[in-house]
């Protein structure tokens, strides 16, 4: 019968109508009066009595709660995590970046530990305005000093603000992504928990102490 196929299709759309939405209302989800009261842990009646202004707002549909997008722990995001204590200034990341957007300037350090071993990092610029987040800089880092982050939202007025400078990298709270870092995955670390990791715990192998480095330096020469 002609038209049966159309009706058959309508059954599908009707089913979808009652199944409920799958869309995530990023970044904010509107909650009504009941939802806003539940967020605050009150009953709707309490909410009305205690905070009438907010209750009116919520009833009018202006109350929102944050709706987070679920991200995997390996997410390759824009805020790079860098551990200065692990970095030797070898510039492998700059060398292997397919776009050449990492700039590193180093100078020999005058501390004992770094005689020939470690350099001062004067400039470490990552131009994330051109970055494609392939993560190859993280993959080639032999000392596990550079890690991807998990941020994905960024807006600036000028392109020069998109360059991450060495000072920004130094002051950042490090929540490294577990991309290409199986040692972080073994400890069930999730960067989205907001917990930061110190430099001693992110490496593939034990970091030698200053004495060991000094001994090795003496032995080699």
């Amino acid at each position: 019968m002609i038209g049966l196929g159309l009706l058959n299709g309508l059954i599908v759309t009707m089913k979808a109508a009652i199944r409920g939405p799958v869309t995530v209302q990023y970044p904010d989800r509107r909650v009504g009066l009941l939802g806003a009261a539940r967020e605050l842990g009150m009953s709707p009646f309490q909410f009305l009595v205690k905070r009438p202004k907010d209750a009116v707002k919520a009833a009018a549909g202006f109350a929102t709660v944050e709706d987070k997008i679920a991200q995997g722990p390996r997410f390759r995001g824009q805020d790079f995590n860098w551990y200065e204590d692990r970095c030797t200034g070898c510039a492998s990341c700059a060398k292997f970046c397919p776009l050449g957007i990492i700039e590193i300037v180093t100078s020999p350090s005058d501390t004992l530990k770094s005689q020939g071993e470690v350099y001062n990092i004067d400039v470490f610029d990552i131009d994330i305005g051109r970055c494609m987040f392939c993560g190859i800089c993280v993959e080639v880092c032999p000392y596990d000093a550079l890690h991807m982050g998990s941020g994905f939202e960024l807006g600036t007025y000028e392109r020069k603000d998109l360059v991450i400078s060495v000072d920004a990298l130094r002051t950042k709270k490090n929540t490294p992504s577990t991309w290409f870092r199986p040692q972080l995955e073994e400890t069930a670390y999730n960067p989205h928990s907001g917990e930061s990791r110190p430099w001693t715990e992110v490496g593939r192998h034990e970091q030698p102490t200053d004495e060991e480095l000094n001994e090795r330096w003496v032995d080699e020469r």
Binding site: A70, Q71, R74, F75, R76, F133, C134, G135, M148, S177
Partner: peptide, 15 residues
């Protein structure tokens, strides 16, 4: 895409 994100950290440009 969510499964790809779990596997390799990116949704479209996987590498």
């Amino acid at each position: 895409m969510d499964m790809f994100e779990l596997m390799c950290g990116a949704r479209i440009t996987n590498s």
